[in-house]
Design a protein around this nucleic acid. Sequence first.
DNA 1: AAGCTAACTTTGGAAAACAAAGTCAGATAT
DNA 2: ATATCTGACTTTGTTTTCCAAAGTTAGCTT
Lengths: 151, 151
Amino acid sequence: MPKTSHATSGCAIARGLDLLGERWTGMIVRDALRGIDRFADFVAELGIAQDVLTKRLNALVAAGVMERIPYQEDGSRMRYRYALTPTGRQLATALASIGDWAAAHLPVDGGSTSHFVEAATGQRVRAALVTDDGRIVAPVDAQLVVPSAGS
Amino acid sequence: MPKTSHATSGCAIARGLDLLGERWTGMIVRDALRGIDRFADFVAELGIAQDVLTKRLNALVAAGVMERIPYQEDGSRMRYRYALTPTGRQLATALASIGDWAAAHLPVDGGSTSHFVEAATGQRVRAALVTDDGRIVAPVDAQLVVPSAGS
DNA sequence: AAGCTAACTTTGGAAAACAAAGTCAGATAT
DNA sequence: ATATCTGACTTTGTTTTCCAAAGTTAGCTT
């Protein structure tokens, strides 16, 4: 067993990090949310090595986050592109919360940063913790509950 | 420059992933949220190699996520522990959204998974996208806006 | 002085990432 | 028909990171 995997851990955070905590994976999903879907474009945008991109895309497809879709431009042969599945699009919340946190706590000189908006209204949206009855809870007032065993 | 860094990227998601997208970092923060704060306990809980833990803790301290705090048990010499800063505790939202997503989309046999609750009431909380006026927006209805340049 | 313990370093080998070059398959141009 | 172009990958060789085990350090107790 060359590399530690938490894919079968009882902790959902561990399982999620097994994907997103891997180098490049989060950036690939971010670009996919921006509409990028072609192998060569991911390479150009991210500067990722091609063999690594192949592995990551395969992992994302295997996890049900992305799917490999054939397409054909006129006057070209059939090729493949990679698009987020509904499951993958749900990761928007996770990426938004990471982005919101970084915007607040890892500032950088150049002002404007990326953010999410509601498509219908253009209104800015942020990630927050909410109760089932719609109350917003500050992160400080939240507590992590782990059923029993740790890892 | 041996390894690509997005630490100075204009994209906040890239900056956040530069930390959380590194192997082990998210798991360390998760355990820190559970109250783990000693070097040896992180090693025991995670099975992480000690030199890697040293590097990750240093990076987290440098980023302002954790702090190195001296402590002394009676009958022992002074040692150091690692605790989340207020900035670090804000990552609860990000970890919750990753955990919520994984619980929904990366199921595993053994039923119970970890989750966050409101400390005061014990009520379960979940990560969601909300507008500034408190409306909840489904991830599908959200759109990522990137100011200008990509990476 | 010798032993104990927690927090690290050091060391050497294995796995992964990186960069560059090569493969492949069709569609168009010569 | 052969040659060329393009996008999606492999292959190859080097660099970097990860890993596991052993070693170091500092102060307290026996």
